[in-house]
Simulated assay, not measured.
Amino acid sequence: MSHNPPETALNNEQIRDTVERILSAGTLPPIVQAGHPALRQRAAAFDGQLSANQLDRLITLMRQVMHEAPGVGLAAPQLGIPLQIAVLEDQYDVDPEAAALRKRSPLEFLAILNPRYTAVGTELASFYEGCLSLNGLQAVVARPEKVLLEFQAPDGSAVQQEFAGWQARIVQHETDHLNGILYVDRAQLRSLSSNAEYAAHWAEPGISRAQAGLGFDAGTAPFPAGQVY
């Protein structure tokens, strides 16, 4: 499937104004939902649109919103800010059987700017995935088991880091947000379930029961090794 979202329609001054309005509101901003233009446009690369103080405050606020949701990642477009900034953190207690099957291990807090990922190898992992911007839904997505993430740290330094298992899923999901891609674009749509129906029928560490009951395969997402996303 080809995805070619348009570039953000906001200029640097409009982006700064949006950030400052959110930072000065004094309350946690809402997470925008599917249909908001910021979720379907490629966010602007961060190249100094914000001062160091503004960037630090924005990252702190994004972490608070992520924790409050609660979630394991949040991208700036999910607050209506079309900038390539995301925060990641996964410290939740998870059922050991599910954690083992999904290769889910704790992810320390990380703020990433201008990220790009490349599939390492050809192995895919298929699991249910949700999104704070598609409240109440989840679907199975096939993603590379291991990726190389290239990004800027908030201090401007360039970083390359490999992620595997559930951590790889998180960094792919959030990087996709910055390119106007939602997980449903990559999902097996026959697997799409409300949280309540998932809990009632398909809740297990893997997806075999849902595959049999809903009639979908594990997916063969087009993630060639070496292609940058």
Rank of each mutant, 00 (worst) to 15 (best):
L132T: 14
S133F: 04
L134T: 12
G136Y: 07
G136C: 02
L137Y: 00
L137I: 09
A139C: 09
V140H: 00
A142M: 03
A142R: 05
L149I: 09
E150H: 05
E150K: 03
A153T: 13
G156N: 01
V159P: 04
Q160H: 11
Q160D: 11
A164I: 07
W166A: 05
A168G: 05
A168M: 07
A168S: 07
R169Y: 15
I170N: 03
I170V: 06
I170D: 06
I170W: 02
I170F: 09
H173F: 03
H177Y: 11
L178N: 01
N179C: 06
G180P: 00
G180K: 01
I181G: 01
I181D: 00
R186D: 08
A187H: 01
R190Y: 06
S191W: 03
N195M: 15
Y198N: 05
A200Q: 15
H201I: 10
H201V: 14
H201T: 15
W202R: 10
A203E: 03
E204G: 01
P205T: 09
P205E: 09
P205S: 11
P205M: 05
S208A: 11
A210P: 12
A212H: 11
G213F: 14
G213I: 04
D217A: 10
D217K: 06
G219A: 14
G219F: 11
T220D: 15
